[in-house]
Amino acid sequence: MVPRKLWRRPLDSEQIKLPKAEIHIIPDLCKGCDFCIEFCPRKALEESDKLNKRGVYPPKVADESKCTLCGFCTAICPDFAIFTTEKKEETSRNGR
């Protein structure tokens, strides 16, 4: 028998605070190379269904919680059309 899969929710799962990300996309800068979608290690992006000014489908956020702020999308984007920032939970709440 192969070793059993770990099935429990770790006891410290709530204490572990990973920085939350905010993904910013500037649709009209995008030329639709899809690099960001393809290379995002957590598959946090997907193609949107709206054409932009340049006549391509820019990316949109599929699941923001998956983003680990690795910044690879920013690094790989040839058109400076995407970047991420750390979400400050309190400030965003106060801002409203």
Partner: peptide, 10 residues
């Protein structure tokens, strides 16, 4: 989940 803690910790 951490194997050493049999998944009780991360």
């Amino acid at each position: 989940p951490n194997e050493f803690d049999i998944g009780l910790a991360t």
